[in-house]
Amino acid sequence: MSVMGATFVRNWRITVRAYPWTYFVGTLATGVLTIGVSMLAYRAIGGGRVGASFTAATGSADYLGYVTIGAAALTFTTRMVLWVAKAQITEYREGTLESQLLTPARRLPYLLGVTAQALSTTAVEITVLVAVAGVLGVRLSVPEPLTLLAATVAATVAVVGMSVPLSALMLAAGEAHITQNTLFTAMALLCGFTFPTSYLPQAARWLGEALPVTWALRVLRAATLPGADVDPWPAFAVCLLLGGAYLLVGLSILKPAERRALHRSARA
């Protein structure tokens, strides 16, 4: 079995043994809360209507569908980043990074194994979140299958691409929380999860354009928003290019970051 497959199996075993149901509830709670608060605001404040600017920006008047897909995408992004970006710093903290680095295994297959397992776990979480949204009364239109598949591929490339340099940053800095939470806050504001990016100031919009997740989200919107007559393929191509570029940068700085972490533990 390959390093990727072995890492997938290893992480799956650890997750099955160590993943408490309370953590599952906590993971869902953020998404459910986002949908619930948006629903209240939409019905109680907006009177069940959206402004013309929203319809113009998104090509749809289905605000609850927009927010639900955005909340699911945000859950997907944060969960995947947490799994993939934190994989190596978790090894470092738990004392297994050295035994990893002693082996001739390459980093990319290892990270892809972590990604594959993260995808399977996150898929379950997203399915439950969308089901809860359905119970709350959100009705989603049936997505276009090919575009949905492209959106899933784009989102995966985007989060893996962003996670690898983030992993290097965490290893180099020796901390995870500040780094990850800064990224999560920036993504939630800039990428268009719960409101169209056209609402942002111009400078912030440019920052959002530099994140591959923003482009992945456009492909997802094209697959899931009724009436949004948007061609998803240019956004798909940009997402792959940006995600690939982030991944290459990440892989190039990962080894120096590992050496820095090993230096730190050697001096300790």
Partner: peptide, 9 residues
């Protein structure tokens, strides 16, 4: 005295 193995496996 170093860990080097996975506790949950």
């Amino acid at each position: 005295g170093e860990r080097m193995v996975y506790d949950r496996l």
